[in-house]
Nucleic acid binder design. Structure first.
Lengths: 196, 196
DNA sequence: GCTATTTTTTATCAATTGTTATAAAATAAT
DNA sequence: ATTATTTTATAACAATTGATAAAAAATAGC
């Protein structure tokens, strides 16, 4: 009973992700957040608590959505060489997209900057990295079982290698390096990740 | 003539770097800055201009100092294998050091987060990356001339590869992954960077 | 010892920060 | 229709934000 809520809690949370992603935790003001979420501050505070609490919920919501475009592209491609290429290519696309906000990855672009100031954010980032490593390694293992990769292929090491190369792309994109320039050594990196 | 300045401008600027490094551009308040720089705000504003101007000068000062510990370790080591190892090892050390502030790299930890909001910061970050790539590649070229690396060794691609792997370490360190855990595949990465 | 000049100090500015009372509005149960 | 309950809207809170005005203090030249 009582007056019904006239906004979608989940939609508001998704909007909050975008604000934090674009402006960072410190850079995002409550005014920015309430405007983008389409609610006023008392509603925000009653549903999400204070700024820090909202931020943590935003991270958890992002992680729960479990949609990392490069990882999805990696898993959707059947051929392992094409899959690795798709991972790097999709990483580049998202890192260099000009549209404001949602640049690169929410976890590495935003959450990584708050691990010192917002306690809970560190373990959430850690879990996301560990999960990504594991998913990539599992795919490599599957290829080994298929015979597409040799038994000696070090899945876990290569998984971490591929993941870490993405972080380099993200930094370079932020520095303004264009996608087509970074694409030039993309195939070369694919061959390194899969080298025997 | 006039009343003499009772603080060292350069020392104050170096202190400002530390504040931005530790707290980020948005997270660093003028109060934080004046306290750490040991001056009061009118002095700050008269010498450095506003916050954005101080920030740009801090970045330029950091770049001018030209001291990137991993890069220095890389160049000081004679043997190329040991040099690559030293680069990664030093990257890990600085990324994981527990002392507050000066974690990882000022450029990638702080400046990379302001490329959208502080216009001038982007090109400064770009120049730093381009310079680092070049320095690493030049060292590889020297090893090729010495015969320590084959003529076919792709210096520039490997330089960028090594540089980008560091970004992965920085992210992982922020997530709380320990140095000794990341050290486990350090030698493996050295062999990949130098593989023929 | 003045004067001119520059810096420091102290105090304060308006604006924005995150946050919360208070009261109006909208529903369900009685 | 009234009551109880919950959410909305409006307004305001104290604190902090980045930034200055005004006055005191310290030097060099005359």
């Amino acid at each position: 009973m009582g007056r019904p809520r006239n906004f979608d809690v989940d939609k508001a949370l998704l909007a909050a992700i975008n604000v934090f992603w674009e402006k960072g935790y410190d850079g995002a003001s409550m005014k920015d957040l309430t405007e983008e979420m389409g609610i006023n501050s008392p509603s925000l505070y009653s549903v999400f608590g204070d700024k820090k609490s909202l931020y943590i919920q935003a991270i958890k919501r992002y992680v729960a959505s479990d949609t990392c475009p490069p990882l999805d592209a990696f898993n959707e491609e059947e051929d392992i060489t094409k899959a690795v290429r798709a991972f790097l290519e999709t990483s580049l696309e998202h890192a260099t997209q000009q549209s404001i906000g949602r640049k690169g990855c929410f976890m590495s672009n935003c959450v990584s900057t708050t691990t010192a100031s917002v306690e809970e954010s560190q373990v959430l980032l850690l879990e996301a990295i560990v999960l990504a490593d594991k998913k990539i390694a599992q795919r490599f293992d599957k290829e080994k079982a298929k015979g597409a990769l040799p038994e000696t292929f070090p899945s876990f090491e290569r998984a971490k290698l591929m993941f870490d190369l993405r972080q380099g792309y993200v930094l370079r994109a932020r520095a303004g390096i264009r996608k087509d320039e970074m694409e030039r050594d993309l195939d070369y990196r694919v061959s390194i990740i899969l080298s025997l």
